[in-house]
Amino acid sequence: MNWLGLVPFAIFSLLFLLLPTFNIVLGAFRTQQGAATLDNVMNLAQPRIAIAFWVSIKLSFASALIGCLLGFILATTVALGGLPRWLRQSTLTFSGVASNFAGVPLSFAFIATLGRVGILTIVIREVFGINLYGLGFNLLSFWGLVLVYLYFQIPLMILIITPALDGLRREWREAAEILGATGFQYWRRVALPILWPPTLGTMALLFANSFGAIATAVALTGSQLSIAPIVLFNQIRGDVLQDPQLGYAIAFGMIVITGITNLIYIVMRVRSERWLK
């Protein structure tokens, strides 16, 4: 009888989450006629697809790594840098907003700022005499996209890592100090190793976060950029690959990658929670 209470949730998640995904995964290993095959997955190796995946991975990795690093520095500064308490609370609130301010509007904001006629581009040209675009900068490039992605990656990092920083107990620092350790030794041997699992876990989360992101890139580059989700998006809309089964394989590949990164996240979270029990 108890199981009846779970029926609505089970039906819903089966119908709108599990079965659609399962259908895709299954499709990745089937021919159009329904026979089992590995050809679709093998076809991912063709340059056009492989490059899209590679760019996606590079983009997600770069934005996750830099977001992680800068977010870590900012969070440490705010949590331990001796800044007033209200600054810390406002930083967290703003991070909550900024981490959700992704997608199309975010790319508009950056176009208005760093596009060819954006205010910052103009100010830098008029006031400092530096022509950003003349120097090879392009908002619609790989690193431009990284710059835009950082706008939601850094705040997400701050939101997740701040509790971990708060978990660093004052006594650990004092114990290390009284045992003769310098501040640097304390960070290298105690604080950073403790923060390492949650940081790595968050980085995996940031990676998955930008790997699936599509709206920002579409709005910035008009769906011309060859990254995995956009290739899949175009394939679904118009079968541009002339091979409907290849779409399944791309989707499957994306699930595998985000699945692995999320696994890393979960493992790392369990590890850090075990310590800080």
Partner: peptide
Amino acid sequence: LPLVIPPVVIAFGYIRL
């Protein structure tokens, strides 16, 4: 799971299913 499965894949599944 929705954090693992990209929305574009979910949408793809809907269209097929």
